[in-house]
Nucleic acid binder design. Structure first.
Lengths: 148, 148
DNA sequence: GTAGATGCAAACGCTTTGCCCCCTG
DNA sequence: CAGGGGGCAAAGCGTTTGCATCTAC
C-alpha cells in the first residue's frame, strides 16, 4: 500500500497542483493527529510546526485531503465538521454520547451490507454513507442526569 | 392517536408555555409542508399566512416542534438543517443523490435492530440515530456522468 | 403586575473568498 | 513572465441572542 504522503502527492499532481511546504507540513501534522479533530484543532497543531501558516490554508488543505481520500469528515449536528484519517482505515461509523460528546468507532458488516443492498434496490450507486448513533455512554449513565 | 396540534399544545403546557397565535400559525403551516424543507422555506410559507411573523420566531418554534417530536431534523453536510414531519411517521433514514440532491426515504428493520444491538454492546442507551446513504440516483446515472 | 413571547437586527461560529504579494517554473 | 499558492482579514452563511415592547393571565 502506498504511503499516505504518496497518495496525496499523486492526487495533487493529478489535479495539476503542487506539493508546497505548507501542504507538506499540514499533511504531516494531520497524519500525527489522533481520533477526531476540528479544523481549529488541526490549525493550532499546524501552527506549532509553522506559525506562518494561516487558517485558510488549513481549511483549503483539509478539503484537498478529503478529496484525496486521506481525510474523512464526520458531521455532527452542531454546525461544525470533524475530521479523521480516512486512508488505510477501514470504514467505520460512530456512536456518540449526547452528554459528554465522546465518540466510539463502530464497524458492522451486516449493516454495511444491508446499506449496499438498499442502495441497489433503489437503483442507487452508493458512494459513501454516514451513520451516527446518539445515546448516553456508560460513564454518563452512571452519573446522574445533570448536564455538567 | 392524538392530533399533532394536540400533541404540540400538551407539550407547550408541560413546559409552562402557551399556545400563541404565531405558534399556531407556524404549526399549521408546518403540518402542510411536504417532504423535507429548510427553516427558510418554512419561514417564507409562514409569511404568506402572516407576514408579521419574524424569522426568529420560526426558528424558535421549529426547535419546539423538534423537542415535541412533531418535527425531525435531517442534517445534510452543507451546514444547513432540513426538517420533516416526525409525528405519526415511522422512523426512516435517507438515500441522497449527490448529484441532484433528491432524497428517498428508506426503512430497514434489520439495520434498526443491529443499531440497537451495537449500542447495547457498548453500554450505550440509544436515543436517536441518523443514517445517510449518499450515491447517484438512477435518473442521474442515466445522464452522462460529468466529472467522474 | 409579572412572566413569557415576539420582531428586529445585531451577533455568532464556522467556513469561504478576495486581494495582493510571493514563489515557482 | 505567467500562474498557482498563501496570508490576512473581511465576507458569507445559517442560526441564535439581546433588547424593548407587547400580551396574557
Amino acid at each position: 500500500m502506498k504511503s499516505a504522503r504518496e497518495v496525496f502527492l499523486q492526487f495533487l499532481q493529478r489535479q495539476g497542483m503542487t506539493m508546497t511546504p505548507q501542504r507538506a507540513t499540514i499533511v504531516e501534522v494531520f497524519l500525527h493527529e489522533e481520533g477526531h479533530f476540528s479544523p481549529e484543532q488541526l490549525y493550532m497543531a499546524v501552527n506549532k510546526a509553522d506559525p506562518a501558516i494561516g487558517q485558510a490554508t488549513v481549511y483549503r488543505t483539509l478539503k484537498l485531503l478529503t478529496d484525496s481520500g486521506l481525510a474523512a469528515t464526520l458531521d455532527m449536528g452542531d454546525g461544525a465538521t470533524l475530521y479523521e484519517h480516512g486512508y488505510g482505515h477501514a470504514h467505520h461509523d460512530h456512536l456518540i454520547c449526547v452528554r459528554c460528546g465522546g465518540k466510539t468507532e463502530i464497524v458492522d458488516h451486516v449493516i454495511e451490507e444491508r446499506q449496499e443492498r438498499i442502495a441497489e434496490k433503489h437503483g442507487f450507486e452508493l458512494t459513501r454513507h454516514s451513520m451516527l448513533l446518539y445515546g448516553v455512554c456508560p460513564r454518563c449513565r452512571g452519573k446522574r442526569g445533570g448536564s455538567g
